[in-house]
Lab assay of single mutants.
Amino acid sequence: NKASVVANQLIPINTALTLIMMKAEVVTPMGIPAEEIPKLVGMQVNRAVPLGTTLMPDKVKNYE
């Protein structure tokens, strides 16, 4: 099972992601793969992401 990116804290809307905000966890359904964490640093979320929520591609601005 592959790990996904999960919010390590509440991430407010329009916040630029940092390493400390994210952790890798095996979750269902799968979100953004954990190996993409370095790519996500500096990207902004387009909505608030509660603690423990899986980061889905549609929650990150300009994620492809």
Rank of each mutant, 00 (worst) to 15 (best):
L40S: 01
Q44I: 13
P33V: 03
Q44E: 14
K39V: 11
P33E: 05
N1H: 14
T15L: 06
A3P: 12
Q44F: 14
I32K: 02
K23F: 08
G52I: 03
Q44G: 06
L17S: 00
Q44C: 14
P33D: 09
V49S: 02
T54H: 01
L40M: 03
V41T: 04
I11G: 01
A34N: 05
A3V: 05
T28Y: 13
E64Y: 12
A48D: 15
P33G: 07
A3D: 05
E64G: 13
E35T: 13
T28D: 14
T53D: 15
T53R: 05
T28H: 13
G52V: 04
K23P: 07
P33Q: 05
K2P: 13
P12H: 07
K61P: 05
T53H: 13
M22V: 05
K59M: 15
L51M: 15
A34G: 06
N8F: 06
P12C: 09
A7G: 04
P12E: 09
V41A: 03
I32N: 01
P38K: 09
V6N: 02
P57V: 01
P33K: 07
P12L: 09
M21F: 05
T28C: 15
E64L: 14
K2F: 12
P38Q: 09
K39R: 14
P12T: 07
K61R: 12
G52A: 01
P29F: 07
L55T: 02
N14C: 14
L19G: 07
A24E: 08
R47Y: 12
M21G: 06
L40Q: 00
V49K: 04
T18C: 09
M56Q: 09
R47H: 14
T53P: 04
T28A: 12
G42Y: 00
V26Q: 09
T28L: 12
L51G: 09
I20Y: 13
I13V: 13
K2L: 13
Y63T: 04
S4Q: 04
T54I: 07
S4R: 04
V5W: 01
V26T: 10
Q9G: 03
V27P: 02
M21W: 04
Q9E: 09
M22A: 05
V5N: 02
P57H: 05
L40H: 00
G31M: 01
T28Q: 13
L10D: 15
T53L: 01
M22E: 06
V60S: 04
N1R: 11
P50S: 08
G52K: 00
G52L: 06
L51C: 15
N1F: 13
G31I: 03
N62G: 15
T53S: 14
L19C: 14
A48K: 09
A48G: 06
V5T: 04
G42V: 06
I11T: 04
V26A: 07
T15C: 09
V27L: 04
P50H: 09
G42L: 03
A24W: 07
L17D: 07
A16K: 13
I32E: 02
N1K: 12
M22I: 07
V41H: 02
M22W: 02
T15W: 06
M30V: 12
L10R: 10
N62E: 09
V45C: 00
P38D: 09
M22N: 01
T54C: 06
N46E: 07
K39P: 01
L40K: 02
V26S: 06
T28R: 10
M22D: 06
L10M: 14
I13K: 14
N62S: 08
